[in-house]
Design a binder for these strands. Structure first.
Lengths: 317, 317
DNA sequence: CTGAAAGCGCTAACAT
DNA sequence: ATGTTAGCGCTTTCAG
């Protein structure tokens, strides 16, 4: 049997021996039939998040899969469209009740969350949340990370520090921006909208390029830039390159995420790194604990960040 | 009931109506218990393939997942180490017999294949195979694609065309190389080892850089390069840039794969593209047909390629 | 064409 | 501390 306290230790031993010898594995179907559990966890993210070239969510998923091995769960991954419509079908494993719990990774359409809420599935979020009072969530410590990024620039003597961001309603981006503001204010530098570009649509290379262009056209003497993520930082660097502005001699730039190619750029990008595998592991632990009623639903886990200093930031001349 | 021919059409209609009304979904556990099927398909690839920044296998997986929805399967993805050792545990879904069939994506350690062979699972391969007589396989048409790439260069007037590759034992790379040789010979150009670098270890940017360097140091007047994949092409372009060799004015280069960033390079890379989603769809169809005994085991599916002409190739001056 | 019943491999409740 | 049994929701077989 499986960990029933009323069984004598010797019997347990004998049983375990037989399990080994016969290479016995209990049937999940039979177990599931009586326990009304499937042993499956759903993992949902939008298609474009899954397919983007930086394997951020791929790595988060892999973390959940690693941890699932320990917890004896299987993870069923499925994608939804990022413009999920009311007429779109819900993931099959929800309709068929083939999962015990659900992990939502990254930003998903609010309409989708609304539609699945009536299924009352145990649910956890990673790298996004809508209602952190109801569901456990794993987040990057974006606020502290943003502060750290800006503090690094300040420690190099920079005073005119810019923030370039996009999709500012996204909680992660918002927090990074808040970190920027707090760091600026704590250093007794004055915060100015002048230095901030926050109205680009998506935080990608293109918007980084555009934001850098708009920023420099203001001609306000910026010497350092904190980009909301590495993609935007890369786009900004491309613009700097085009107008012959040297990084880091003329302008310093720091990103966020530590994407794969950050270290291969010229110059290699200073950034804030996070362990995406750990994010997956943590969110799997949360859902597992939730299913075992081990935690209250409001738990929040913040994943530590790490300042990675490369060559794109330098002391102000 | 489910498609039993002995039931009258009107009863079928009544039943279908009730299914809709009650939002009925059959229990997979109960079905599985009696049918001895799980309705799950395993998807195995190495960890580094899954995590590499180009979402090639991610996209293949997504294709299988799309097709699985139609076939009413669930796909369980798990990774193995690329240096799989004898002592490493096998994926849990194999030990627990929690899958009906298995998809192997990309190159996996031969030792791993040997170890799982005794489980006699229905198995299909995608983008790799060891023994194509025993298992169905989905492949890029690497040979024809390689020919097409070289023919493109030939059509631009190039005569001294190089091939740079790595991991030449890999069937895909081998076929691309064969395509190169055939195209060269058919055009009545002479094939020469002189123009070929094939002994780099992994086909990545670094090896592309090194191969380009070694090639040009031979000083044999090469005017065009066919790289075994885009990653190597990118590495080669980096070297050309460093030694002030202009692409495409001084040297033309064509890659293979059409990775995401190929179009964003300076200049944008001419390459051979393939639909990775389709690869996933096809391999899922194969395993599904195999499980329904619809096909003999030796079937091969070749995915069509597409020449994508960008700015990295030009007519020979 | 339809109804009835056995049994898949487990868990949980009950008996010993 | 251990043995026995009902029943989870289906599919398949057999009876009508």
């Amino acid at each position: 049997l499986n960990n029933n306290p009323r069984i004598s230790p010797e019997t347990v031993l004998k049983v375990n021996k037989a399990i080994k010898e016969l290479n016995y594995h209990p049937s999940r179907s039979a177990r599931g039939l009586v326990s009304r559990k499937t042993g499956n966890i759903g993992f949902i993210l939008t298609e474009d998040h899954f397919l983007r070239s930086e394997p951020f969510y791929t790595s988060v998923f892999l973390g959940t899969e690693f941890e699932a091995r320990r917890d004896e769960y299987y993870v069923l991954l499925t994608t939804i469209s990022s413009d999920f419509k009311n007429s779109d079908p819900l993931p099959r494993f929800i309709l068929e009740k083939n999962i015990d719990g659900l992990i939502i990774a990254g930003k998903v359409p609010p309409l989708f969350l609304k539609k699945i809420s009536k299924y009352e599935l145990p649910m956890t979020f990673v790298d996004y949340y809508q209602d952190s009072d109801s569901y456990p969530v794993v987040l990057v410590d974006n606020l502290a990370g943003g502060m750290e990024a800006v503090n690094h620039l300040i420690s190099l003597g920079h005073k005119k520090i810019s923030f370039i961001g996009a999709d500012i309603d996204h909680p992660s981006i918002q927090d990074r921006f808040s970190g920027y503001k707090i760091a600026i204010e704590r250093a007794a530098l004055k915060f100015s909208e002048e230095f901030c570009i926050t109205d680009e649509e998506y935080p990608n290379r293109e918007s980084g390029y555009n934001a850098a262009k708009r920023l420099l056209e203001k001609n306000n003497g910026v010497t350092a830039v904190f980009a909301a993520n590495d993609a935007m930082a890369i786009g900004a660097m491309q613009y700097f390159h085009e107008i012959k502005l040297k990084v880091p001699e003329d302008i310093s730039i720091i990103g966020f995420d530590n994407v794969d190619i950050a270290k291969e750029l010229v110059p290699p990008l200073t950034t804030i790194g996070i362990s995406t595998i750990d994010m997956g592991i943590e969110v799997m632990r949360l859902i597992s604990d939730l299913l075992k009623n081990k935690i209250k639903t409001a738990k929040k886990v913040l994943i530590p960040y790490e300042l990675i200093v490369r060559k794109s930031t330098a002391r102000l001349k």
